[in-house]
Design a binder for these strands. Structure first.
Lengths: 256, 256
DNA sequence: CTAGAGGTTGACGCTACGTCAAGGTCAAGG
DNA sequence: CCTTGACCTTGACGTAGCGTCAACCTCTAG
């Protein structure tokens, strides 16, 4: 008993194109090929096809399926790995769903937010809670008022400096220089200088006088960067933030 | 102020290749192109890039992103649609996870299961609960014993008939003939004949005598096919099962 | 003999870039 | 002036799994 492509395709619930594809990649060869090139399939190939389709429905890729069918003992191990992969995908989707909903809420709160902050990589309000908790409500209020009072052009310049600092840090970290190098220390100096411009922080308060607070503040900042995953994204991954932290620590010990 | 590809790429946290791609597809054109072909970007293009990357991180496709950025009012609607899509994907993954785990458990229970039933498209035990609930435990026990007592070759023949019937139904449904046509009615006859071979069903009990039960049974069978999504898969989708149901109903009314 | 159904082999299309390959451009140093 | 090295350019292939023509045989039934 043997069948043509269409017959097999209908029986198994797939298409002839799929069968030709499986033939091409060597996943499922016809049991016989006629002199006219026609493909014919028998029972054993049909069974193999149905195994393939079952595994495919479970979400496995064709190479993985070939692996399983050719080395049967690995089947449970392979399924286990696939299960892990499926769970990872679900987690990823869960995170994306949260992000999308947060974005939508932010857009509802004020359409302006989008144009001004949400989409330009410098969301000043996003850190409200942390700033308040760390440095007091007063600090955030001052800082916020300062920001809102700024002209758009000034804002742009400010944001630009922030971004430039970030990318310079990344470039330095990737270049492989040490955290104590002159290059890194210069960046640390710029970072502190930049911080001095933000009102409500110990750095700005002591811009003139200079107190021991600043040292702790700068050192603590580095630790905070490392602990908070959002900063990792801005400083080129985990290695990047650790580089920033070390550079700031060394700078604080030497100069503050 | 303008920057080169690499500078923009580092600032925004992406690669120059991505920028060239966005240029190619028209998603993000450089603000200026030098006589030497070099791409240069300014502040506004940088902002646009950052919007693009934000939306990309939310999982949107590039065409969707272009849509949003070019017709801003649609942004929340677009995000809503995207959210729906993300949820659907999560559901799909959830179903796959369940399937994979079931398969793994089935493989643990008896490695034989795989070779004999699980993978050959005729999982006789899969319907145990439904069969018991519908026709009583006795019916399932009989049916199961009958199946287990069969020689492999006989089993193959039986499964073959089942598959052949399935694909013939699909072919008939797709050919566009009506449920009352001679072709469909012949299939219905074969289906009833096939059912007669399974012990423990009203169809087999009355194979000789013929009682009113059979009519109800066959009619009910059609309804069950329609209600159960697993059958839809075997009969070429929703339209397919409806065709089968109608054909069986007409046949039962005429001949039983 | 001629449809018509069904078969074949290419080959492009789709997502979003990664990854060579081959070759200009530009600033700095010998 | 020439070289080196960093940075830029335009192709073009590869990826996963087929869908979808296109152009062209083959077989069967009327």
């Amino acid at each position: 008993m043997e069948w043509s492509v269409q017959q097999i395709a209908r029986t198994a619930g797939t298409t002839s194109r799929t069968l030709r594809h499986y033939d091409d990649i060597g996943l499922l060869k016809p049991s016989r090929t006629g002199g006219n090139g026609y493909r014919f399939y028998d029972q054993s190939t049909l069974v193999r096809l149905q195994r393939i389709l079952l595994l495919r429905d479970l979400g496995l890729g064709l190479p993985a399926i070939a692996e399983i069918l050719d080395h049967e003992p690995d089947v449970e191990q392979a399924l286990g790995r696939h299960l892990d992969w499926l769970r990872q995908e679900q987690d990823r989707l869960a995170r994306q769903i949260v992000s999308v909903r947060q974005t939508m809420e932010a857009l509802k709160d004020g359409g302006q937010i989008m144009a001004e902050h949400m989409f330009d990589g410098f969301d000043h309000t996003r850190y409200k809670d942390e700033v308040e908790e760390r440095w007091g409500k007063d600090a955030f209020a001052k800082s916020d008022a300062w920001w809102r009072g700024m002209a758009p052009a000034e804002k742009e310049t400010w944001k630009q400096r922030s971004r430039q600092l970030g990318s310079d840090w990344i470039a330095a970290a990737e270049s492989g220089v040490s955290a104590g190098s002159a290059e890194a220390q210069e960046l640390a100096r710029r970072q502190v200088e930049w911080l001095t411009g933000i009102p409500g922080t110990p750095a700005s308060a002591s811009a003139a006088g200079g107190s021991g607070d600043v040292k702790d503040y700068v050192t603590g900042l580095g630790e905070m960067y490392v602990a908070d995953p959002r900063f990792a994204a801005n400083y080129g991954g985990e290695a990047g933030v650790m580089f920033v932290r070390d550079a700031l620590q060394i700078y604080a010990a030497k100069h503050l």
